[in-house]
Amino acid sequence: MDFFAAGSRPSLKANAEYFTGTVWQDVIVEAPAPARVRALRVAFEPGARTAWHTHPLGQTLHVLSGTGLFGLRGAAPRVIRAGDSIWIPPGEEHWHGAGPTTGMVHLAIQEAADGKSADWLEHVSDADYERAPE
Rank of each mutant, 00 (worst) to 15 (best):
F3R: 07
A5P: 05
G7Y: 05
G7W: 08
P10N: 06
S11W: 03
L12F: 06
A14R: 03
E17Y: 07
Y18L: 04
T20V: 00
G21T: 07
T22P: 01
V23T: 14
V23C: 04
Q25R: 13
D26L: 11
V29H: 12
V29L: 15
A31N: 08
P32D: 09
R36N: 09
R36T: 10
R38M: 11
A39Q: 11
L40A: 03
R41Q: 05
A43F: 02
A43Q: 05
F44V: 05
E45V: 00
P46E: 04
R49G: 08
H53Y: 00
T54R: 08
L57K: 14
L57T: 12
T60Y: 00
V63C: 01
G66W: 05
R73F: 08
P77S: 11
R78Q: 15
V79K: 04
G83F: 06
D84T: 04
S85Q: 15
S85N: 11
S85G: 15
E92M: 15
E93Y: 03
E93H: 02
H94T: 06
W95N: 05
H96K: 11
H96L: 09
G97I: 09
P100D: 03
T101W: 09
T102V: 11
G103A: 12
V105M: 05
H106G: 01
Q110K: 12
A112K: 14
D114A: 15
G115S: 09
K116M: 13
S117D: 14
S117T: 07
A118F: 11
W120H: 05
V124R: 02
D128E: 15
R131V: 09
A132L: 06
P133K: 01
P133I: 11
E134Y: 00
E134R: 10
